[in-house]
């Protein structure tokens, strides 16, 4: 698999620092599970986090803090090999195994939708999309960010072709009309902030019937 499109450095850093919201974090984690280069990137930012931690001006602890910690020391954990393949029990990509995922539902010609239950205080919804080969999605723009990780197949829009493992980090300035790969269709995971606004007369006509 050759991955061409990756999350931005700012996104990898936010993930590494733990400040990225959960909903968008799921899509980033899905990409990381497939992309060694970005795992290295996250590790690099974690190292930077460690260096920043070493350098921060220390706070004052309450009296007796060390003694309380010493008194709480118990036995060490026994090292067990990492539980390999735990995620493979589910047919879902690894990061989704922690979440309730709804059934596939048709939302339009050739397009199915499957919600991932995750709360978001930034109005971000997470869902999987499965589109039939050759599906042309209507030209649309977003009221917020739209982050996508491709699992199978591919889609193409103005900014290039997005195949398996690719990450599309679209913000509110992007307006596009993705076309799904003619041979393989496309399965992807999306974190959508706000909603999409369909463009053109046809889009405006069908907007009321489109749930996403």
């Amino acid at each position: 698999m050759s991955i061409i499109h990756h999350p931005s450095d700012a996104t990898l850093a936010a993930f590494a620092s733990g400040t990225l919201d959960e909903a968008r974090g799921i899509v980033v984690a899905a990409h990381l599970a497939l992309c060694a280069q970005c795992r290295n990137g996250v590790h690099a930012f974690e190292e930077a986090g460690g260096a920043l931690l070493d350098d921060v001006e220390p706070a004052v602890l309450s009296a007796g803090a060390l003694q309380r910690a010493m008194a709480a020391l118990g036995p060490l954990d026994i090292i067990s090999p990492a539980i390999r393949g735990a995620a493979a029990v589910s047919d879902l990509p690894a990061p989704l195994s922690h979440y309730a995922v709804g059934p596939w539902r048709w939302i339009g010609r050739g397009v199915q939708w499957r919600p991932v239950e995750v709360a978001s205080d930034e109005g971000v919804r997470v869902f999987m999309l499965k589109a039939a080969p050759g599906t042309k999605l209507p030209r649309h723009r977003h009221t917020g960010t739209e982050w996508t990780c491709v699992f199978e197949g591919a889609f193409t829009h103005d900014l290039g072709r997005y195949g398996s493992g690719d990450f599309d980090e679209a913000d509110e300035s992007v307006e596009h009309n993705p076309v799904v790969d003619a041979a393989h269709g496309c399965v992807c995971l999306v974190a959508l902030q706000g909603h999409i606004e369909l463009q053109g007369w046809l889009g405006r006509l069908i907007q009321p019937f489109v749930r996403i």
Binding site: G18, E22, G25, I26, V28, A29, L32, A33, R39, V42, P81, A82, I83, R84, A86, A87, A94, P95, S97, H98, Y99, V118, A119
Partner: peptide
């Protein structure tokens, strides 16, 4: 935060061993 996010770090850490 009390959300599931900490678990998001497990899968990619698990790939490493």
């Amino acid at each position: 935060r009390g959300d599931n996010r900490a678990k998001l770090y497990a899968p990619y850490e698990m790939v490493e061993p």
